[in-house]
Amino acid sequence: MNALHLKKGSSQHSAYHLKPGYGDENERRVLAVIVDNEAGVLARVIGLFSGRGYNIESLTVAEVNHSRHYSRITIVTTGTPMVLEQIKSQLGRLVPVHDVHDLTTEGPHVERELALVKVVCSDDKRVEALRMCDVFRAKVVDTTLESFVFELTGAPEKIDAFVDLMKPLGLIDLARTGVAAISRGVDAPKE
């Protein structure tokens, strides 16, 4: 018996309503999360994202207050406005979390990322790589006769652009720190 006149393949055979109730566009947000630097705190944050199906585009973490053992986690995430609000409140209710700041909506902010780029090349390409390095204000931090390691700091888009330019010149390895971000102006999170 199919008392409910359900069409074949209908999701209404499910115990759950399978159509998501939101259709908004995804947005990108940069969150600064101040946490106690205790064992497992990063696992809690990451577990929250994976367990609830949220995206992480970039994540950086380091202790920023050594005397009180506070770490700052910078998370770049995407989602619909409703999901982003959930992410913030879910983060906020973790016990070791002191504060969650949405830098994207709270005002202007600066985003920076550091990249180490290894390029192996010779002759003209070597000259060209150095010229690019100059244009992007990157530093050469290691060199051999066949290779360079460039250090570059900037917004993620600048690093993307540099990486794209280095690919044809012999990019063979790349390390990026992920985004660290801070608000512009005089305001700072209370501790």
């Binding site: 018996m1 199919n2 008392a3 006149h5 359900l6 074949k8 393949g9 999701s11 055979h13 499910s14």
Partner: peptide, 13 residues
């Protein structure tokens, strides 16, 4: 619920 039986395969519970 007294309706005709329709033998559609249910995929999900």
């Amino acid at each position: 619920t007294q309706n005709t039986i329709d033998h559609t395969g249910a995929v999900l519970v």
